[in-house]
């Protein structure tokens, strides 16, 4: 039995307080890349009652994704935005989702991300990470961007930190563990970095800007 929208809203308010939940419910957050970081950020934000998520990825679910990304074995081959939308609706049935199966570039970023209050960078490649931070700060300087760098390998979880680089640019991760040099990616450490990003989003919405 799926609860009504009113029942779920009441449950959110009981957990977060009414004033804060109103901020969460009216927020739009974009998630750029729906892999290990992005899919986990999306689940945390959907569970927190964020009103609208913009989900962007050009890729499809692969068997090698299942060890750390929020997809299911029966979703292999599906486009990630479609598969993740299904999963998020099971968690939070009344969330508004704007799913895009395309690659984000410096040229289409404003049209894709224009409605977002906060943008999460959740790409895999370093060049794409740098491109998105640069593009958002140059073309949409009024927005917040929460990016990630360094969560590969089986290193200490305590090395993952959130730093505030400028008033509107936050960076999560250990900043050094490159997937190209590490022994792969591990679910919990990637989720930890994603959790830093998701929680930073919630703190920005709560007007808690310091890290």
């Amino acid at each position: 039995m799926i609860p009504t929208k009113e029942q779920l809203q009441k449950a959110f308010e009981q957990r977060h307080g009414r004033a804060l939940q109103e901020k969460f419910s009216s927020a739009t957050v974009a998630i750029c890349g729906l892999g290990g970081l992005g899919s986990n950020i999306a689940v945390s934000l959907a569970r927190s009652g964020i009103g609208k998520l913009i989900l962007i990825d050009f890729d499809s679910v692969d068997i090698t994704n299942l060890h750390r990304q929020q997809y299911k074995a029966n979703q292999i081959g599906m486009k990630k935005p479609t598969a993740l939308s299904e999963n998020l609706r099971e968690i939070s049935p009344y969330i508004t989702l704007d799913a895009h199966c395309e690659k984000i570039t410096a040229q289409n970023a404003v049209s894709l991300l224009g409605d977002a209050d906060i943008i999460c960078e959740a790409f895999d490649r370093a060049e794409e990470k740098a491109m998105l931070v640069d593009t958002v700060m140059e073309q949409m300087p009024e927005k917040y961007i929460v990016a990630a760098s360094g969560m590969a390998g089986i290193g200490s979880p305590n090395a993952i930190k959130t730093r505030r680089i400028t008033s509107r640019f936050y960076l999560c991760g250990d900043r050094t563990s490159d997937v190209a040099e590490q022994n792969g990616l591990f679910a919990a450490r990637v989720m930890l970095c994603a959790a830093h990003q998701a929680h930073t989003v919630l703190r920005i919405l709560a007007d808690q800007f310091e890290v």
């Binding site: 890349g33 892999g35 970081l37 992005g38 990630a148 969560m151 590969a152 490159d178």
Partner: peptide, 10 residues
Amino acid sequence: LEVVGFVGGG
């Protein structure tokens, strides 16, 4: 200045 270097993985 701070030069922020990105590494891969996500």
